[in-house]
């Protein structure tokens, strides 16, 4: 089913521009309303996230960006169905999320490929869980790997692959069951800068062809702007939405777009928002003197002598 629908989607994406009403038919709408999560600690309750409301329209690419520990990943885990909010609601296409399922694909920073399965067996996994018979799922996985340019690695075990390739397989694996929604939790965080840029382009290409809804968690400002239609900025813990920023850059975006003045303006705006929160996230441990690194002038003397 997934490959045929994928082919249909690819064909549709090939047409110049789908009419507006056809776009609204597509599913994969994410609604998070007044989301709150708190958990017990030895000293009482800690608020991790409070009062977050956000939406992702069908086919939209939305990023969440914020300082570490602000609860970005918590939101994704709630959407994936791994945890329930203590207040508020998490809905997909109007239905509350109740446990994990293949309709929401998830990609993790730690690659998460099964080491005991070959690349093709990894891609087949979701189809196997759906009850697709062996010959058919093998055919589908082969087709998908071919489209993603990974055919020659189909019989390799993940250990033999580079980080970028592992993550490409991870994305293909998540897409194989034909999910309406893709959730990505800092997927490129462990990759080097160059691989990262290439992976961002691969991801946007896939997304543009499939027109599924994407919620992307990152702490990288450039990545958020380059990929997204909209960016939510979260505050330091307890996490809440600080700002929502639309990214009006035209698609398809070339890597050179990051040098454009519009991009830089967006970047400046987001930088100041994030910096404020990152300083807060570092808590009382950072003050004006600490920020200078060493708040004195050593006149080219080495540190040991000056002391």
């Amino acid at each position: 089913m997934s490959v045929t629908s994928l082919k249909a989607r690819v064909a549709r994406a090939g047409q110049a521009q789908p009419p507006l009403d056809a776009r609204s038919e597509r599913q994969g709408r994410i609604e998070i309303e007044d989301f709150g999560l708190r958990y017990k600690t030895p000293t009482g309750f800690t608020e991790a996230v409070t009062g977050v409301s956000l939406t992702v329209e069908p086919g939209e690419f939305v990023s969440i960006i914020g300082p570490s520990g602000c609860g970005k990943s918590t939101m994704l885990n709630a959407l994936a169905g791994f945890l329930k909010p203590t207040s508020g609601s998490v809905r997909v296409d109007g239905k509350p999320v109740d446990g994990p399922g293949a309709d929401r694909g998830m990609i993790f920073q730690q690659y998460s490929l099964f080491p005991w399965k070959t690349v093709r067996q990894n891609v087949e996994f979701g189809l196997k869980m759906k009850g697709v018979e062996a010959a058919e799922r093998q055919r589908q996985a082969r087709t998908l790997l071919g489209l993603a340019g990974l055919s020659q690695f189909e019989d390799h075990y993940p250990e033999a692959l580079s980080g970028g390739m592992k993550q490409r397989v991870g994305i293909v694996r998540a897409l194989a069951t034909g999910p309406r929604i893709l959730l990505l939790d800092e997927p490129f965080g462990a990759l080097d800068a160059q691989t990262r840029l290439i992976m961002q382009q691969i991801l946007t290409n896939m997304w543009q062809r499939l027109k599924i809804s994407v919620l992307f968690v990152t702490h990288d400002i450039d990545e958020a702007i380059f990929l997204s239609d909209r960016v939510y900025v979260m505050t330091a813990r307890p996490g809440s939405i600080k700002a929502e920023i639309a990214v009006p850059l035209a698609r398809p975006r070339e890597p050179a777009v990051i040098m454009s003045s519009e991009f830089l303006a967006l970047r400046r705006g987001l930088m100041s928002l994030i910096r404020e929160e990152s300083l807060k996230a570092m808590g009382g441990e950072i003050n004006a003197d600490a920020l200078k690194g060493l708040a004195t002038n050593f006149d080219n003397n080495d540190l040991a002598r000056s002391l």
Binding site: A80, F82, P100, G101, A102, R104, G105, M106, F108, Q110, S112, F114, F125, G126, M129, K130, R173, A174, T177
Partner: peptide, 22 residues
């Protein structure tokens, strides 16, 4: 690795399948 368990469940694996496959 709990991430592998979560990945399997995201791909539609139920309890018995997670046990067998992960």
């Amino acid at each position: 690795d709990p991430v592998l368990v979560r990945a399997a469940r995201c791909l539609g694996a139920r309890e018995a399948a997670v046990f067998r496959e992960v």
